[in-house]
Nucleic acid binder design. Structure first.
Length: 627
RNA sequence: GCCCCUGUAGCUCAGCGGAUAGAGCGGUGGACUUCUAAUCCAUUGGUCGCAGGUUCGAUUCCUGCCGGGGGCGCCA
């Protein structure tokens, strides 16, 4: 079936296969491509790739490594790809790709809308659980990372060819809704329909992000509450201070969980109000999530009892202090005691442990997911591992179905503490994004660009997203406007600028030559003969050929910063090329080649940024005055 | 107490078991008659927390300690 591979394999794979063959020839031993240890070489060694296989194999076969390296080189068939391989140091095999080969590959990329990134030949059905804000709370920085990282992963997975089911696991159920509903009723924001029942009880209330005292959001239709922060706080302080109110709130929780129609209607109002708020935030962020992706905690309510009984039937769930618990193996807590997942609390209510189990069961059993990604903060690691462990015992995972916690660290202020406002509240997402746009607009104005809201948005939102994606997700990251909006360094603005410069060259070329330059958008247009006479041209070309590998390693462990690092390197290569290689003034053939490089660089940057959910504006500066 | 994450240049961060550990910022010195100088070039700056171990080779893997963050039964 692979007669005409429209998407050539990764270079390292290609070279690895050759080394494997050489090893087989010399040692009569079948090694894997991994064991060929192909690495990108540092430029000062005069090589593009190196194989470090000889040292390890020498050990295994009791031969001097250099001697083995020489034998391997002697039977290494890479003439079509590389110059003659060289041996260095203890036995590194250095390989430098032939310019002619690079040029040829570049031609293939040029004709390929995917720039060499092959779609997977075994698409998976992947559920991605991300964003997951809380109903009746305004979104804040705590939700930023999950939303941004999750969105990037969804884009990357879809581009790779997987079937992605986004799941926005809203925190739309639980104890706080009693007080929120009662407060809304008292404020006349919603119309009380039904009386609350009595009793007490609690429900899971569960977001993914940290739920620490955020903004409240409620209000009915036209009476939308504008400051939902204080709404939530008011409700909460009344709950603390006013026993009568607290009792009504508790009753309301029971009514809610019992499915009281009037209470549900009030709850529904709160949910809808919040969803409108989320929609705004997602639109502003340019995130793919839609209402269709919403599957909040409430959607699993009617499955919880069934989950509990299924766990009991398997003998996993046992009574402990009146609560129904599962104690998965290998999890011990404070006093060496096993840590439970609480399936049903002693008061009979279900919490988020059960909700998460139900959600996971639904995802693999009903949605048919083979992979479930949880883009959830690192503090929930233990919880999720326990959920996964129980799910595995129940057969909801395993046998080709797996879950993965895409954990991420916190957003810190420049004081290295959790990012907060002066008053100690979490920073509201809406304010943060507004500031991003304002600062971007200021920067643009400084550069003589006319005020353009769309452009400011592309720059500002892009900067926020890129800053979040560019460092290893597992670590906390320090939020700094100054750094993220800088024009130098590993920032989105730098990448956007590199692209804008490339497009500017292409635009001029098109202007000068009418339309027959064969570039600028040229899907399907014939590739030029790439001329790599300058080192900067070769560097750029090589960087372009490495895009598929960058995307692959990014998805291997779901770390978008790897794609960022690659893109930054690509932009640096382009800048070097731009500096060293005049395009428009070059003689004909060379000019075509360089225009082709500009086009490929732009396409690669745009494609990469698009996978990250970041826009790539056509221009970032006013057209230069022309003499 | 136990578990997880983390500690790389003054600051913010990359670094896939391999060759003199890399960027950006900052400092210093250069480059705009020429395709966007929001750029580029040069230079300064690191006992990769500490101590052991495995290995031909360790910033990378293992163990212990130290520092920072987080988690550990009816909140989510």
């Amino acid at each position: 079936m692979a007669t005409q591979p429209s998407h050539p394999a990764d270079i390292a794979q290609l070279l690895g296969a050759r080394v494997v063959r050489a090893v087989e020839h010399v040692l009569g031993e079948q090694i894997t491509v991994q064991e060929a240890v192909i690495r990108e070489a540092a430029p000062e060694h005069g090589a593009d790739y190196q194989s470090n296989a000889a040292m390890a194999l020498a050990k295994r076969f009791g031969q001097p490594p250099r001697q083995l390296a020489e034998q391997l080189v002697a039977s290494l068939d890479v003439e079509d790809l590389c110059e003659a391989p060289a041996i260095a140091g203890p036995g590194f095999i250095n390989m430098r790709l032939k310019d002619s080969w690079i040029s040829e590959r570049l031609g293939q990329l040029y004709a390929d809308p995917r720039l060499g990134v092959a779609p997977t030949d075994s698409p998976a059905r992947v559920v991605v659980d991300y964003s997951s804000p809380n109903v009746a709370k305004e979104m804040h920085v705590g939700h930023l990372r999950s939303t941004i990282i999750g969105d990037a992963l969804v884009r990357l997975l879809r581009f790779r060819g997987d079937e992605v089911i986004a799941q926005n696991h809203l925190g739309d159920w639980g104890t706080p809704f009693g007080m929120l509903i009662e407060h809304a009723v008292d404020e006349g924001l919603v119309q009380a329909t039904g009386d609350a029942a009595h009793g007490d009880g609690a429900r899971g209330d569960g977001p993914r992000g940290d739920g620490a005292g955020a903004a409240g959001a409620a209000g009915a239709g036209a009476h939308a509450i504008d400051d939902l922060n204080s709404f939530y706080r008011q409700a909460n302080s009344r709950f603390q201070a006013d026993p009568a109110f607290a009792q009504r709130a508790r009753d309301r929780v029971v009514a809610l969980q019992d499915g009281d129609a009037g209470t549900l209607a009030l709850w529904q109002t709160l949910v809808q109000e919040s969803e409108a708020h989320f929609r705004d935030a997602y639109a502003r962020l340019g995130v793919l999530l839609t209402d269709a992706d919403i599957a909040g905690e409430s959607t699993y309510q009617d499955q919880l009892a069934d989950v509990a009984s299924e766990l009991q039937q398997r003998g996993l769930a046992v009574d402990s202090d009146g609560a129904l618990c599962v104690f998965p193996d290998g999890f011990t807590g404070r006093d060496g005691e096993p840590v439970p997942l609480i399936v049903r609390k002693s008061d009979g209510a279900y919490g988020y442990d059960t909700t998460d189990l139900a959600a996971l069961r639904h995802r693999t059993r009903d949605l048919g997911a083979t992979e479930v990604l949880y883009v959830v903060g690192a503090p929930q690691r233990l919880h999720l591992e326990m959920v996964f462990a129980v799910a595995a015992e129940m057969g909801w995972l395993g046998d080709g179905k797996q879950a993965f916690h895409v954990a991420f660290g916190s957003v810190l202020g420049e004081d290295h503490k959790m990012l907060r406002t002066r008053s100690g509240d979490p920073v509201r997402l809406s304010e943060l994004l507004a500031e991003a746009e304002d600062r971007a607009a200021a920067v643009l104005a400084q550069r003589g660009m006319e005020a353009d809201a769309a452009l400011a948005r592309a720059i500002g939102i892009g900067a926020v997203k890129y800053a979040d994606l560019a460092s290893d997700r597992e670590k906390d990251y320090v939020f700094s406007w100054e750094r993220m909006l800088a024009f130098e360094g590993n920032t989105s603005v730098y990448l956007q600028y590199a692209n804008a410069r490339a497009l500017s060259v292409l635009r001029r070329a098109a202007d000068e030559a009418g339309v027959d330059t064969g570039i600028a958008g040229g899907a399907g247009a014939g590739a030029p003969a790439f001329d790599l006479r300058e080192g900067a041209e070769r560097d750029l070309a090589l960087a372009l050929l490495r895009l598929p590998a960058a995307i692959e390693t990014t998805l291997a462990d779901f770390r978008p910063h790897k794609l960022c690092t690659y893109l930054h390197g690509l932009a640096v290569s382009y800048s070097g090329f731009y500096e060293a290689c005049p395009v428009l003034g070059a003689e004909d053939g060379l000019r075509q080649s360089r225009l082709g490089l500009c086009e490929l660089a732009s396409r690669a940057l745009v494609l990469g940024l698009d996978q990250l959910g970041i826009e790539a504006p056509q221009r970032l500066s006013p057209p230069p005055a022309r003499a």
